[in-house]
Amino acid sequence: MALKVAFFAAVAVISVSADSPRLPAPSYNAPAPSYRAPSPSYNAPAATGPAKYDFNYAVKDDYSGNDFGHQESRDGYNTQGSYYVQLPDGRLQKVTYTVNGDSGYVAEVSYEGEAQYPQPSGGYQPAPKSGYA
Rank of each mutant, 00 (worst) to 15 (best):
Val95Thr: 14
Ala25Phe: 09
Tyr63Gly: 09
Ser39Ala: 13
Pro38Lys: 04
Asn29Ala: 12
Tyr53Pro: 04
Ser39Cys: 07
Pro33Val: 10
Val106Ser: 06
Tyr84Leu: 10
Val16Arg: 11
Pro31Ala: 07
Lys94Thr: 15
Glu108Cys: 00
Glu72Leu: 00
Tyr63Asn: 15
Gly65Thr: 08
Gly65Cys: 11
Ser15Lys: 12
Ser39Glu: 13
Tyr84Trp: 15
Phe55His: 06
Lys60Arg: 03
Tyr77Asp: 15
Thr79His: 04
Glu72Ser: 01
Val109Ser: 03
Ala46Asp: 04
Ser39Gln: 12
Tyr35Thr: 09
Asp67Phe: 13
Tyr53Ser: 01
Ile14Cys: 13
Tyr28Thr: 05
Pro21Tyr: 05
Asp89Glu: 05
Leu23Glu: 13
Gly104Asn: 05
Leu92Gln: 15
Ala12Met: 05
Ser41Ala: 09
Asn66Trp: 05
Val16Lys: 13
Gly90Val: 11
Pro21Ile: 04
Ser20Val: 15
Lys52Arg: 04
Val99Cys: 09
Gly104Cys: 04
Pro40Asp: 05
Ser41Thr: 12
Thr79Asp: 14
Gly49Pro: 00
Thr48Pro: 02
Tyr53Ala: 00
Gly104Asp: 03
Lys52Pro: 03
Gln80Trp: 09
Thr79Phe: 12
Asp102Phe: 11
Pro40Ser: 06
Ala18Ser: 15
Ala47Cys: 04
Ser17Gly: 14
Ala107Arg: 06
Tyr84Glu: 06
Ala25Asn: 09
Gln93Ala: 15
Gly76Asp: 06
Arg74Met: 14
Phe7Lys: 14
Ser34Asp: 11
Val59Ile: 09
Gly104Lys: 02
Asp67Ser: 11
Ser15Cys: 13
Asp89Pro: 04
Pro50Arg: 02
Phe55Pro: 00
Pro24His: 09
Asn66Ser: 09
Phe68Cys: 08
Ser82Gly: 14
Ala32Val: 09
Pro21Glu: 03
Val95Asp: 04
Tyr77Ala: 12
Tyr77Arg: 11
Val99Trp: 06
Asn29Leu: 10
Val85Gln: 08
Pro21Trp: 04
Phe7Tyr: 14
Phe55Ala: 02
Tyr28Phe: 15
Thr98Pro: 09
Tyr105Gly: 06
Asp19Ser: 07
Lys60Glu: 04
Tyr84Cys: 12
Ser27Asp: 02
Thr96Ser: 10
His70Asp: 06
Pro50Gly: 13
